[in-house]
Nucleic acid binder design. Structure first.
Lengths: 155, 155
DNA sequence: CTTGAAAAGAACTGCCT
DNA sequence: AGGCAGTTCTTTTCAAG
């Protein structure tokens, strides 16, 4: 939670790239990859964690394996904008379990949502019963995901 | 990579929710939360991992702390569609380091990109020199991210 | 920063209900 | 499948060069 503003060097960035790809790597393995001993690598990882650069660790859940085969991105433009509207909208949208990610954005849309549905029929139900009935919803745009590739990162 | 098609029960889903939020939790802590002993929890985690439901573990890197303060979502519609175009486009877009995520989608756009830039000026440079020069790029739409909230998941 | 080693904790194994 | 009692393996910390 504390951010003592450290300045990560090239070695730190290499560590971050490795851990962002696979957090099961041990400090010893990390060190072997970048030419450091286990304690040296471990201290760097700890420093990055304490500084908040490493903000957490998560498992990647294969939602398709759980029966959620359809991922849809929604762009939503609110009809009536105003401070209360934004908060009300966010509160309502956050209560929908199929909504994985809520992004407040600037541009053609006001919000972007990542939706996980079991199938297209399930998505239609969510869209009609849950999304279209949200307070203040105006224009809605949908994109069904076919495939996704995640890249190392800009660092 | 192997998916022996297991059927996760409510307890498994509870484990997945906990680990998706914080993968540093030990099997003992997980067990304490859901009322299982350490070996029982551990065996379930292992089973979920072997089955591929837990697809990996990643650290969350605070890109803002690394100087990338601007996240932009791009929707891209290709001008000339065709099999070779898609592959050529994907190869080229994947080579841009600031591109974090490449999503092939169906709908108004063909691709969605998540871009990490140091600031707006940096983003403009990426957009003009990298994105607009990609092979086959047609319509481009941009949304600057203000905030993002991730939710537990549909499971 | 390195090596070596010890302490703590987590992962893993059999066996039993 | 879950519980109990272990053993084994890392991780984490420390001492010393």
């Amino acid at each position: 939670m504390t951010l003592p503003a450290i300045a990560p060097d090239a070695t730190d960035l290499a560590i971050l790239r490795l851990l962002a790809a696979d957090a099961t790597l041990s400090a010893a393995e990390i060190g072997r990859e970048i030419g450091l001993t286990q304690p040296a690598a471990w201290r760097r990882i700890k420093r990055l964690t304490d500084a908040g650069v490493i903000a957490g660790r998560r498992v990647v859940v294969d939602t398709a394996a759980l029966g959620f085969g359809v991922t849809v991105f929604l762009g939503i433009r609110l009809a009536a904008k105003g401070r209360t509207s934004l908060e009300e909208f966010e509160r309502a949208v956050t209560a929908i379990p199929e909504v994985q990610v809520v992004q407040h954005v600037l541009g053609q849309f006001d919000y972007r949502l990542r939706i996980h549905a079991r199938d297209i029929a399930d998505f239609e139900r969510i869209l009609r019963r849950r999304i279209m009935t949200l307070p203040g919803v105006g224009q809605v745009e949908a994109n069904v995901m076919l495939s996704e590739e995640r890249r190392p990162g800009p660092f």
